[in-house]
Amino acid sequence: MSCWETIADYGLRSIGIGERLLPRTDFTICQQFTLIGSGMIWNIYFGVLALAMGFCLATGIAVGKAARNPLIRKPCEWFVFLFRGSPLFIQFFLAYEALVLLPREGFEIFGITAETRWLTRAWAGALIVLFLNTSAYTAEIFYGALRSVPKGDLEAADAYGMTGWARFKRVTWPTMLRLAWPAYTNEAIFLFHATTLVFFSGFPAWQQRGDALYYANYFADKTFNPFVPYPIVAFYFIILTLGVIGLFALVNRRLNRHMPQEAKRIRYRPQMIR
């Protein structure tokens, strides 16, 4: 079987397209690269969606944490503390245990049955955990940036007569984002790394559809040789990390386009790498 055929058979195996049975004997390097690469689909899925959703929630939480009203501030502080203070490994486990406790038949709400089974599946359950987790970390980064928005910028906004929402949208938020961006880049890298934990603690793999690490584990288990599959995962992740850094650098350049030349280069002086 040529390598192209292998790619055709297994390239999308992680989402259930292609050959149903995983290779069982005569494992080739090509098979390992293909299947582990196929698993990367899930890592990217979890990473991208959690980051996108987390970005929105984090902005809200960061503003909430900076609020004067303790009724808003306290819950935000507790949320950040809970998710930043405990290992993701344990969060996954507890979330899975809690989600399977939901009634099997779903809830009856106003005569409509709300299904809950899908929450125990990794694509939903693990995504929620990752989403909440990255929201907490990102909120802390944004909160730090929010507090270091230069006073002068806000005074200038006042002078222009901007208030409330307009001031936040046009001055505070863009400045906060610009200040937080280097640290946020690191958070994004860490989040992608964290996606490898999904099938490792708590969430089960259905029909052998898993992420890159799941397939690496499969091969390590079948070939009894950990020195091939795990470095392949490492290789994929180095590429992914470089991609993330490149993409975030582009955004960074846009965020800083009005700044003097010096600030345009992303400076890795991580104040808050995760």
Partner: peptide, 18 residues
């Protein structure tokens, strides 16, 4: 840059034996 690019769990899975 290499070590930072790789998830720690992947390192842990084969590094000790290596």
């Amino acid at each position: 840059s290499i070590v930072r690019g790789v998830p720690d769990i992947v390192f842990f899975l084969f590094f000790v034996i290596a």
